[in-house]
Design a protein around this nucleic acid. Structure first.
Lengths: 341, 341
DNA sequence: CTGAAAGCGCTTACAG
DNA sequence: CTGAAAGCGCTTACAG
């Protein structure tokens, strides 16, 4: 059985015109409290909901935002991250009664741009972009339409200079790691950096190195692929140079964990022989032995800020004129000290 | 700049009526190839897309399906799972040019049922339910509307008897674990089962136990909370009874990993002193030392089947009459043998 | 405060 | 094969 109650049905029941029903249900001030009450009651009893299509057609809004997910450079990271972000967005979205459409930049089948399609079809009012490297097509499309958009998580590149972007400060994160390690008395470091270019990793490394050099430390820089086994192998292949240092920074937890495994196989004691720090505070960083000191990125806040920013674009909150200047908001990461340092 | 090209604009450009444009763009057979070609070309050049609201209004379809996510009994599992499922759904959805709206059963703010809202607003054409325990309201709503729906992942309960449900067979999974362990020569087992009731865990346990008893094995049954540290503690607290057995089944990887940690602290050798098996093939099960033997659930197939089933409901594929009988489709899990057994 | 009317952008009988 | 017309379920001036 389809429930197809429309405002006309309610109008008939209430003995008013359907324009009036519309006004009542939209809480228009133009309508008497009495009829409003009557109409609202009837609507409620009937479980009435506006037809989103009809409404969207006339108001030119979709009451939905799109989130663009990355293709997945490192499945583990990305997947865990999705879930967290989605959960964080939830409250904010439900409060506003706005739906969330999940998509990816490019359609696997047609190779068409999903974003353009969604926007042109009027399916969404705004865009949360969780992608590191948006295509030129995407960027120029959004720009030409001036479509409400905010980039989340990935640090801003020059490509997206005039967009809002909300991210955690990876450079500072790197600095925090270095400071922590200096406090623990270390001076000679190994850093496992990443072969592929990802700006966030680059920044972590730079923040770390800058801080180290500032305090007269030394750095043994090793390059690995971005997965557990590669990191382990890289560590094994460079054991001698590593042993000349007393602390290690793995650019994410997966790397740190792989390295830790190699060290343990060599009977190197952590942290007394060599200390080690990861990055991401991924779920399993807590379960290693010893548990891993790492950097936490406040994802909930990221989600919160990004939606606030997005909705101020959508609603053109021009009371504060800052809507016109695009913002780069960075959130400070925080050190989670555990047993590996 | 808004792109508001409509079929009327195209009609003007092509010198035909907008009805004809509609027919062309919908590839109607009622239109000559010549005008079809002309119109399609113009539309393409203009990056035209139908207004989904207008189209949805007249056709009563949304071209979107909703996925209902669980509130999250065990954050780690749930989050990782989301991501994977989403990825798997993607291909199928993009091929069909259907959008995905993510939601949860209940709105955190209004306490209203999000599913009912989405359906009544005509925002979705079908529903993928990734929840273990749907509310009575949800169930009776879907039933009364005969709304296309399929339950995914969680084994069917009596509550959802007349629904489609696609799940992996946890009972068989449990049996597989037992068989594997018997093959390795074990006869006396410890199983870490879970305090809270989750049908999937219950089934794993039952499958395991049935198989063990059938072959004359013994079982030391321990109950733990569903997290790493609880499992570790539970193991520590029961070390003596555990030592009388030679193999352990942890109802999921997290539990198995916690137990493994406790065993290693006692200098128990895995697998030579005690073997251990987990369940889920979660990302980190590979990285433990020794790596964990576990059960993999083919989530991609789950996603695939569920969408196939959903769309055959939506499209009323009555050529095969099996659309009317609700199906329980179970997929066989598979053993991933690693170094812990 | 309320109603009748126009219109949002489409699809689809109906008539030719 | 093509066009004119009706209608999907709303919102919102316009008139009273």
């Amino acid at each position: 059985m389809a429930n197809n109650v429309t405002i006309k049905d309610i109008a008939a029941l209430a003995g008013v015109s359907y324009s009036t029903v519309s006004r009542c249900l939209n809480d228009s001030p133009l309508v008497s409290d009495k009829t409003k009450k009557k109409v609202n009651e009837i609507a409620k009893n009937l479980d009435f909901e506006f037809n989103a299509n009809a409404r969207g057609l006339i108001t030119s809004t979709a009451n939905a935002v799109g989130i663009v997910l990355p293709e997945g450079f490192s499945q583990v990271n990305v997947n865990a991250y999705h879930g967290l972000l989605l959960n964080s967005l939830r409250n904010s979205l439900e409060k506003r009664d706005v739906d969330l459409i999940v998509t990816y930049q490019t359609n696997h089948f047609t190779n068409q741009n999903n974003i353009i399609r969604l926007v042109n079809r009027k399916k969404i009012d705004g865009l949360i972009l969780l992608i590191e490297d948006p295509s030129l097509e995407t960027i120029s499309f959004i720009k030409s339409r001036d479509f409400p958009s905010v980039f989340v998580h990935y640090p801003p590149s020059t490509k997206i200079n005039d967009f809002d972007v909300i991210y955690t400060d990876h450079f500072v994160g790197g600095q925090i790691v270095a400071k922590h390690l200096f406090e623990k008395g270390h001076k000679d470091f190994t850093v496992f950096s990443v072969e592929e270019y990802h700006k966030e990793f680059k920044l972590r490394e730079e923040g770390f190195c800058q801080e180290v050099y500032k305090h007269g430390g030394t750095i043994n820089n090793l390059k690995t692929k971005l997965d557990y086994w590669s990191a382990k192998k890289c560590c094994e292949d460079n054991m001698e140079s590593i042993k000349n240092t007393s602390a290690i920074f793995g650019l994410n937890d997966l790397i740190a964990l792989g390295v830790m495994r190699a060290l343990k196989n060599e009977n190197i004691n952590i942290p007394s022989d060599i200390a080690i720090v990861g990055y991401d505070n991924s779920e399993f960083s807590e379960y290693s032995n010893p548990s891993l000191t790492t950097i936490h990125q406040p994802r909930e806040e990221l989600a919160l800020f990004s939606l606030e920013r997005l909705f101020s674009q959508i609603n053109k909150d021009s009371d504060n004129d800052n809507i016109n200047l695009k913002k780069k908001i960075s959130i400070q990461p925080v050190l989670i000290e555990r047993d590996s340092t």
